[in-house]
Simulated assay, not measured.
Amino acid sequence: MTDTVYKICGREEWLEAQSAGAYLGNADDIRDGFIHLSAADQVEGTLARHFAGRTGLVLVAVDAAALGPALRWEPSRGGELFPHLYGPLPMSAVRSAGPIGPQP
């Protein structure tokens, strides 16, 4: 579908993931059984819908191919296909990470 997918998360949870060597997901990810990701054209909508008003957010760019078969494109919001990661997000798959959204 695309060669880069994205994860939006809080700065503190991202720092913990870096220390651990993998991102295991936030409460929503754990509840749903997969890590919610977005394609580039979905990031803005995800930010507005799920992170409105939050500060201290990080946008993580991930090499989709490095995730292998654990990455699945499945229908979600409005039937649109979204990338879902069934397993941890290894730091080796991360291309970049930086601040996104309103910052303090």
Rank of each mutant, 00 (worst) to 15 (best):
D3S: 14
V5S: 04
V5N: 04
V5Y: 01
G10K: 11
G10F: 05
G10L: 12
G10A: 14
G10N: 06
E13D: 09
E16R: 15
A17W: 05
Q18H: 04
Q18K: 15
A20M: 08
G21K: 09
A22F: 14
N26D: 14
A27N: 10
D28P: 02
D28W: 10
I30Y: 00
F34D: 03
F34M: 10
I35F: 01
I35V: 06
I35A: 02
I35W: 01
H36S: 15
L37P: 07
A39K: 14
A39H: 10
A39M: 11
D41G: 12
D41P: 00
Q42M: 06
V43P: 01
E44P: 01
E44I: 11
T46M: 14
A52F: 09
R54V: 08
L57G: 09
L57E: 02
V58G: 03
V60S: 04
V60Y: 00
A61N: 09
V62Q: 07
A64Y: 03
A65M: 06
P69K: 12
A70P: 09
L71E: 09
E74T: 13
E74M: 11
P75E: 06
R77G: 00
G79W: 07
G79F: 05
E80D: 13
E80S: 12
F82Y: 13
L85T: 06
P88H: 09
L89W: 03
M91N: 03
M91F: 02
S92P: 02
A93H: 08
S96K: 09
P99G: 14
I100L: 09
I100V: 15
G101W: 01
P102S: 13
